Amino acid sequence: MLLAGALAGCGVPTGGAPEPIPTSQVPYDLASPSPTVTGAPSASARIDEPRIYLVAEDGALVPRGRSLRSGALSSRLDQLLDDLATGPTTGELTDRLSTALRPETSLSVDELSDGTVTIDLGGDAEAPAGQESRRAVAQIVLTATSLPEVEEVLLTRDGEPVDAPLPSGALTSQPLSAADYEPLLTPTASPPS
């Protein structure tokens, strides 16, 4: 009992109102807001520049800016789609970004009409399945619509419309917009499969 009373007397005082500590007395800049890191700062894309979308470790699609040569829309779009089909750069791989597109995939612009671009999927690669197929389609749609003149994307294979997966898993052969794939811009609950 005597020991308990002695220990209670050595405690932290509990009375009195809290007092603010002057910023000059806070050590190591603890009063400064913590920086938030969302990928490599040097590689992030500006909203006003063409960009491709890659897959982050958490499954979210992230934009990475690309410089394009000036020219007609179809030419700029071809450059952007070639960059997407090529996959992440060495720096982007270092940032642990990947792609859901198969290495043998080719993407070509077939037609441009009133803000809708028709992109033909080529190559011998088998299409990815499940969540990866949704990410692959989202990468194509989000990349193409990063150019302000493109509002929607229609996917074809050998000139025939493709039933493309939406984030929900539902299939559609209708033109796709960036808004259709907004749910894939946030991390998934589980790691990518």
Rank of each mutant, 00 (worst) to 15 (best):
R46G: 15
I47K: 14
D48R: 05
E49G: 06
E49P: 10
P50T: 02
P50L: 06
P50K: 09
R51Q: 09
I52G: 02
L54M: 03
A56F: 12
A56S: 12
D58I: 04
G59V: 04
G59N: 02
A60G: 07
A60E: 03
A60M: 10
A60Q: 07
V62T: 12
P63F: 07
R64A: 05
L68H: 00
L68M: 01
S70I: 05
G71D: 00
L73P: 11
S74C: 04
S75E: 11
S75A: 11
R76K: 11
R76L: 04
L81R: 04
L81H: 04
L84S: 00
A85D: 10
A85S: 07
T89M: 03
T90N: 14
G91F: 10
E92D: 13
E92F: 02
E92P: 06
D95V: 03
D95E: 13
S98I: 09
S98D: 13
T99D: 08
A100Y: 01
L101W: 06
P103R: 04
E104C: 13
T105Y: 02
S106I: 05
L107A: 09
V109L: 11
V109E: 03
E111Y: 13
L112V: 11
L112R: 01
S113G: 12
S113T: 15
G115Y: 00
T116W: 03
T116A: 07
T116M: 13
V117P: 00
V117T: 09
V117I: 08
I119E: 09
D120V: 06
G122W: 11
G123R: 02
G123W: 05
E126F: 12
E126H: 02
P128E: 08
A129Y: 14
Q131I: 15
Q131F: 15
Q131V: 15
E132P: 12
E132H: 13
S133E: 15
V137P: 10
V137Q: 08
V137L: 00
Q139M: 05
I140R: 08
I140E: 08
V141N: 04
L142T: 07
A144S: 01
T145W: 09
S146Y: 07
S146E: 01
S146N: 04
L147P: 09
P148I: 12
P148R: 13
E149Q: 06
E151I: 10
E151L: 06
E152H: 07
E152C: 07
E152I: 10
V153H: 09
V153C: 03
L154I: 07
L155M: 01
L155I: 03
L155E: 07
R157H: 14
R157A: 13
